[in-house]
Nucleic acid binder design. Structure first.
Lengths: 188, 188
DNA sequence: ATACCGATCCTTACTATGTAAAGGGGGGCG
DNA sequence: CGCCCCCCTTTACATAGTAAGGATCGGTAT
């Protein structure tokens, strides 16, 4: 009497959400197809129907998810303010899921993440930045590095640390401080 | 008839060198105990004698290896020059082994890497930097992020890219440019 | 020399993981 | 009612990490 239907049907979104939950809660190493299946009340192989390339596709999707950000262009007029808004949004997105940070830092941007980057370049160009592509590269580098150091220092990798949120007030202060310096430096 | 001795005896350094070679050449995911054993002309289990905690210890050792840098304090007098020298050395060490970059970015510093950091803080303090710990955090963040973006853009992760060296002239120019801005910003 | 011993390496075996292949059941359409 | 397709399950296999227990060697004490 096998082959029952799961309570709620599977979907790409539900898979990614569950994967993020597991990676954030127990680390990327413990994110396995079978565990992911258990979390979704489904056998592991069911996932392959929604993510045809298996775990590789899952990893790509996770990286894409935490690196895709968009900011309202109307919220800021100068390219400096837009750059800052984008950097803050990126930092927030990455800190929300420290478990997949290594993927975000390692995998080259694809799909929606890549689109978001080109959009950001366009926004900076329109608002008068010189070398907008270089500015976005520098901003991405700054955000990536800041988040990496913040997560390291929050003791997130430590399995027996009660710290489950990588965000700290000190980290935010440092981030804002360096961001101001970087944006100022991009002008010259 | 079993149990022959390997041509040249195993050692922690040889293991780490071989592991770096595999990770750089075929990616972290292909770095397996058995493959590492093959590269060393040894059975996989022999490695555990030199790295008692197994693969976890190996990963820690690799991260430690590419994040341990030292700069001659006599080579630069001002804290700005020392900061720049340290940043350049760190970047070079990380770019030399792009295969283990995700470990370096993710794992908190331990052992010799941690010692090198505290030494660097001390050097900056002695040469007159205000908030040397904050400066080192900012420099580490900048180096990490820059290298991450450089490696991403070099197409290193792409399995069928002929690019086996992540260093580019453009990357270096951007790095130096941002480094100047950051060091300037740290002064205020 | 002989007997022992500890460091180093091998063999075997077990569990966990990713995933290819094929099967089953349920709903919609003819 | 019969057929088919979509979604999920079963089964199976290659590969991974590593615990447990030998085997081999060089050296040391007797």
């Amino acid at each position: 009497m096998p082959a029952k239907r799961p309570p709620v049907p599977l979907s790409r979104e539900r898979i990614i959400d569950a994967a993020l939950h597991i990676a954030d809660g127990q680390g990327l190493r413990r994110l396995t197809m079978r565990r992911l299946g258990d979390a979704l009340q489904v056998e592991a192989m069911a996932i392959y129907h929604h993510l045809p390339r298996g775990k590789e596709a899952l990893m790509d999707a996770l990286a894409e998810h935490v690196t895709t950000v968009q900011v309202d262009p109307a919220a800021a007029a100068t390219w400096q303010d837009r750059a800052r808004a984008w950097a803050r949004a990126s930092r927030a997105a990455l800190l929300e899921h420290p478990g997949v940070l290594s993927l975000a830092l390692t995998k080259p941007p694809k799909g929606s993440a890549l689109i978001a980057i080109t959009e950001q370049i366009e926004q900076l160009r329109e608002s008068g930045a010189g070398d907008p592509a270089g500015a976005v590269r520098a901003l991405r580098a700054y955000v990536f590095g800041s988040v990496a150091v913040e997560v390291q220092q929050s003791g997130w990798a430590d399995p027996d640390a009660e710290v489950r949120d990588a965000r700290t007030a000190e980290g935010e202060r440092d981030f804002e401080h360096g961001l101001d310096a970087l944006v100022a430096g991009l002008g010259g």
